[in-house]
Design a protein around this nucleic acid. Sequence first.
DNA 1: ACGGGCCGCGCC
DNA 2: AAAGGGCGCGGCCCGT
Length: 801
Amino acid sequence: MARSTAQSKLRDRLCSIYKDILVVNNISLAEEVAKMLTVNYRHLIHACDTEVAKINVKQETPVDHGEIICFSIYSGSEADFGGGKSCIWVDVLDGGGKEILNKFAEFFQDSSIKKVWHNYSFDCHVIQNYGFKVSGFHADTMHMARLWDSSRRWVGGYSLEALTGDKGVMFGAKLDHEKDLIGKVSMTTIFGLQKLKKDGSMGKMITIDPVDVLQRDERIPWICYSVLDARSTLMLYESLKSHLSNMPWNLDGVPVLRKNMYDFYQQYWRPFGELLIKMESEGMLVDQLYLKEIEKVAKAEQEAAVNRFRKWASRYCPDAKYMNVGSDAQLRVLLFGGTLNRKNPVEAIPSERIFKTPNVDKVIEEGKKAPSKFRDIKLNSIGYNLNVEMYTPSGWPSVSGDALKVLAGKVSAEYDFIDACDMVLDDEDGNPSQSEVLPVEIDKSAYGTAFSAFPTEEEGKEACHAIAALCEVCSIDSLISNFILPLQGDNIAGKDHRVHCSININTETGRLSARRPNLQNQPALEKDRYKIRQAFIAAPGNSLIVADYGQLELRILAHLANCKSMLEAFEAGGDFHSRTAMNMYPYIREAVEKKEVLLEWHPQPGEEKPPVPLLKDAFASERRKAKMLNFSIAYGKTPVGLSKDWKVSVKEARRTVDLWYNDRKEVLKWQEERKKEACETQCVHTLLGRARRFPKIDPAFSYHKGHIERAAINTPVQGSAADVAMCAMLQISNNKKLKKLGWKLLLQVHDEVILEGPTESAEVAKAIVVECMSKPFNGKNFLKVGLSVDAKCAQNWYAAK
DNA sequence: ACGGGCCGCGCC
DNA sequence: AAAGGGCGCGGCCCGT
């Protein structure tokens, strides 16, 4: 173990702040200091930071997890806690545990004492784990930084270290970067130890002791490290406050008088941040027994499908019996061995390759006594050239579900293959092979592109069934490994058996994202073959309310572009996509006008079926295209992409796109304006005035330009929808009646919110939620378009959709 | 054993 | 030459 000289120097510099630190390591001192905070210095802004042990931040939620070992508070240089010391460091580990923490309860709980944090969610949860709620939240520098520049993800990111180390961010600080240590320094930089190699040189492996060990064994650097977090947070806050204050605030394109983006932060994102933490604390109740049940079913179905595929594949490649059908590398060799890389034709998929695979059959390899954990299998190509229609971004043939579906066609995955050894026996006996025995009545249209790659129809047919089975394996596998298993992980749930995902404001557009686990990507109803959403339940006596916006993004687009036709269509109500189709195709309009088809149908009492066909049935393909365009155009999809989806020429796709724009000229104009704005000002804005920045377009990369242009037309739509959803959530959360009835927000999925509360008030609450969402701006809706909201209550997420 | 790249895929 | 925006996450595989 060794320290580099650079590390030693940095540690020396770090320790120079020790003289400013009051170390609080006993109860009576804690009492004294806490009193100064809550009385003498209560008017100051305090940056706080905790250090936490016994938590695996990559896997666990801080709700009900983690132990605070120390915390630090910095209230600016004017505070003096004795002897000119301006920083407080409190030893929770050896200074009194929960008792010492309790001395600061009043400070943390006082709503009039302003506290700033970096990533407040984490600290808030770990402090709340000790039984007192944290109040007086003034700012989260992570969110402020995101609001100031949402595009740092790939260039620096939003860690305290990255932000405070960036001179472009810290411009407000009147400090000398060279002389004063103002930026956070990571734990690895200060405490990381490099293992020495045998020859005495520095190795690459860096180890780091657990934080509680550091606190005891590296006391002074550790104390300084911890305090520096609080100090740099306060300086970051000041800097970002200046930045945001210098950004004018435009609401729906109109300047908000004498207000700037710091005001925006305080008005919207600060309360929103606090709301998200509340939602994280609530968590969702998950029915573990139910998950166990569907896990069994899913695994059985998966195994059946795996066996079908392996049985077929082993005819062409004996070791395929043991292959991992979930490995894209193995599938690639088997199905596409010998194929060249499209981007780099020097590389090819090997026709034969050795893979390591779990030794399930306990095969004892040559020269070994006991079966090893893994063994080698040799996979080879099936030997027929399958048509490659889809490629991965790096140029290899794709083995994704979509690509496999093209190969398989629309055939059933249920098909019983005979064993490879049976085939061999038949051949050896000179008996007719299977293909000649079976009736050869084949409807070729159902089979995919794999069919014709094989020498006989029977072989082609079986290949399609086998690949269909493979598709099924993949889809079941993804349901099991992405949803069914993670939701049962014991690291996921808190003490209350509820799942507390973290809900983050961390996207470039302002949408939320969810992690550990991601509850925003649970299977949609149609694809949810195991009804996973049924596992999300309300507690006994409670119900869930699930409320979602109808065509939120399209409505936003209609508003932003001020598109007459779209606004009228929404005004008229009914099926928006049908109306789009009618406006695109004159013959559909004619049919509607002649009352040969109905735009939509509201059954009258006694009416069994509509008097004339519905548009969506009579012109199904036109409506499908219209619907697809409605969704695609806001994302910036091009005729080239659409031509692939629709399997038509680019020219044909372009004509259809033109039909869509025909009565929506304003949209085209608006999109051109956004592209121009992005190009000229490197910025576009959302409804509430949040900006998204873009880098200057580098003419050397035209793809770059395309991406920026698409993001420029999408961000105002997606971001404004996020703004609306946020406002709605704030309305819901501030609603006194809902609060009194005991209804709480649990989750947001972009245009959908989920609440839980007492069943007896579910209907009343539902009506309030709908009202809040329909009028999300302080009880009003200033948009040129109405907001439609659909809401249901039920015992679980599946039933409430 | 762990981290990162790649692929693929779930959602809106 | 490629051509839909925004996410998180799991498995595999290869590097250290």
